[in-house]
Design a protein around this nucleic acid. Structure first.
Length: 560
RNA sequence: UGGGGAGUCGUCUAAUGGUAGGACAGCGGAUUCUGGUUCCGUAAGUGAGGGUUCAACUCCUUCCUCCCCAGCCA
């Protein structure tokens, strides 16, 4: 550590630093990540997870995992499981602090009675429709409910009977008595409880009234002695209400702080739209490798470290914007470059016959597993008279600056020999089906004793030794950098070529033993991940995680 | 037209009255048995006007643009 290069502190860290200094929370820092178990977590949630749990690590403090399960009609155990798995996979630990809002239902009910007793809440007999109509609008104040001024005794009686199941669903609600003329719509006597006969995934049929988010959330935070309650910008308007409830009850008060949610180019991060993709069959489930869900990214081959790095690099601020998906890919390649072992794989094979290599013979050549990590060691790769090379690594009429194989030209076969193309063999339709080449036995290992150089190095696989497992080429799910922004249906922006399945690739033989969950770099091609669901022992399936950066395509496109 | 927020290189993000900096993307180059990695260099920004000040991204003021809010969703 030569330089004390401090990473600039974002505004939430600055607030925490100040609170620590002033002793506001007795030097404590305690955050929480409060997902609703009604869907799968996505990369946007990952930002929040990394923020909340990251702060706990940074300040040597605590972060709770809390399920905000106040609405039984949307929530399921399946989602709880996936969320727990995802947060853990991202590398975070809540120790014994796994909580559920539903654990607090009784306390919440008792607190509500307290508000009724202090005259701060009342039972409203109006229908949902009537309440909506009397709420007013953005520019007009609301009207007070005719039931607003019932006695405390009547309210208490009614509320208890709501709880005991005397009234039908939707017939009554408990409302906070605040101000129907407030400019902030959230303060116009917000609903605290609704009557809802639905089986809750944890409390079963114990309750027929359920608390609303605004009523419950601050108390959940308060009960858990959270210091800094972090949420996204759309809750800014809710903060006065968050504070109002806690003040009215005179209980411990955490501080809500809002930050901008993550938006990603070429990506959709709305639960509703993601659900539409799944249910409409546009993808194969929530964990489809094209999905921005944590489970999708995991199956695609993303690593927890790359996602944490990304979260740290996009930063935390109040300004809303769209992060570049290229940054996510950069973080991924950074991590994979260091950790993924290299292999050779030919995706679009073109046969090469080495005329001067003895028929029926083969040899083993040594290849480096990872140039970024010597301890990854070396492996043997078989070489023989007939090989496959990538079709795009040969041009009959090479453009300027193309330095791969061409008629009469010499290139290096990676870790093998120099190879020169002598003859191009075509079928009757003119398509190239084979290349006849000669190799230089003196260049074994890849360098020439006479000092001559070649411009290009290409990868290859011995034909008789090659294996051909299935390879799935994934691409962006959307063609537009901002799907659906044209005002039309976002589904119109779907990239119909986001999955291409390849069955005739030629891979080096060691790859047949690849195990589910392993990462590889196919040299000069990209990073691949052995699909953890569809792979079988002896028949792996490779998902393309991300391509390698590709300067050549850029050069060729620019025409220079 | 009510209320709440936000405007800094293409993108994300610092600078909190004192040299507008970093990252990704871009461009140029070096190294390289991966057109990968790495390294070096380079261009590019304070929404607009007015004011205060020796000095303004920062303070004041007028305006403009964008986002959020009328669930018994979270």
């Amino acid at each position: 550590m030569s330089e004390m290069e401090k990473k600039p502190r974002h505004f939430i860290e600055q607030v925490i630093d100040e609170d620590l200094e002033s002793g506001k929370y007795d030097g404590r820092v305690h955050t929480r990540f409060p997902p609703e178990p009604n869907g799968y977590l996505h990369i946007g949630h990952a930002k929040s997870i990394c923020l909340n749990f990251g702060l706990a690590v940074q300040y040597n403090s605590y972060c709770n995992l809390r399920f905000d399960d106040t609405n039984p009609v949307r929530e399921e155990e399946e989602y709880v499981k996936s969320i727990i798995e995802d947060v853990r996979w991202l590398g975070f630990d809540w120790e014994d602090r796994l909580y559920y809002a539903s654990d607090y239902f009784q306390q919440l009910y008792d607190f509500a009675c307290q508000l009724v007793e202090s005259g701060d809440a009342y039972v409203d007999d109006q229908s949902a429709e009537e309440i909506r109509k009397t709420r007013g609008s953005l520019t007009e104040p609301g009207k007070e409910s005719p039931y607003r001024n019932r006695s405390v005794e009547e309210n208490l009686d009614l509320f208890k009977r709501m709880q005991s199941g005397e009234f039908p669903d939707g017939s009554r609600v408990l409302r906070a008595k605040i101000d129907m003329e407030a400019n902030n719509m959230n303060m116009r006597d917000p609903v605290m409880y609704r009557i809802l006969r639905a089986t809750h995934h944890r409390t079963g049929d114990d309750w027929c009234i359920y608390p609303t988010y605004d009523w419950a959330h601050g108390l959940e935070d308060s009960i858990e002695r959270i210091t800094h309650s972090l949420c996204t910008l759309e809750f800014e308007d809710h903060r006065p209400l968050y504070d109002w409830y806690l003040e009215a009850l005179d209980v411990y008060r955490p501080q809500q702080i809002e930050f901008a949610p993550l938006n990603l180019s070429y990506t959709l991060l709305s639960k509703r739209m993601l659900r539409e993709l799944v249910e409409g069959g546009y993808v194969n489930g929530w964990d489809d490798p094209r999905m921005p869900t944590i489970s999708g990214l995991r199956r695609r081959g993303f690593t927890p470290a790359s996602i944490r790095d990304f979260a740290s690099r996009v930063g935390i601020a109040k300004r809303e914007g769209v992060a570049d998906v290229g940054l996510l890919e950069y973080c991924l390649r950074q991590d994979l470059n260091i950790h993924a072992e290299r292999r050779m794989a030919v995706l679009d094979p073109l046969k090469v016959v080495i005329k001067n290599y003895p028929e029926g013979e083969s040899e083993e050549l040594e290849a480096i597993n990872n140039p970024e990590n010597e301890s990854a060691g070396k492996r043997k790769v078989p070489f023989s008279r007939e090989l496959y090379i990538e079709r795009e690594d040969f041009r009959e009429d090479p453009p300027k600056k193309y330095f791969r194989l061409a008629p009469g030209r010499e290139v290096r076969l990676r870790y093998a020999y120099f190879l020169k193309c002598e003859e191009v063999v075509k079928d009757s339709s003119g398509e190239i089906i084979e290349l006849h080449c000669i190799y230089d036995p003196e260049t074994k290992g890849g360098s020439a004793p006479d000092g001559r150089k070649v411009r290009g190095t290409i990868h290859w696989v011995s034909a008789q030794h090659a294996v051909s497992p299935e390879i799935r080429l994934y691409d962006r799910l959307f063609r537009s950098s901002k799907p659906g922004s044209g005002g039309g249906d976002f589904k119109a922006d779907i990239n119909t070529n986001s999955l291409e399945t390849l069955k005739d690739c030629k891979l080096e033989p060691s790859l047949i033993d690849a195990r589910a969950g392993e990462h590889f770099q196919f040299e000069r091609v990209g990073y691949f991940f052995v699909d953890p669901l569809d792979s079988r022992e002896g028949s792996p399936i490779f998902n393309r995680t991300v391509t390698l950066r590709d300067k050549w395509t850029k050069i060729e496109k620019s025409g220079k």
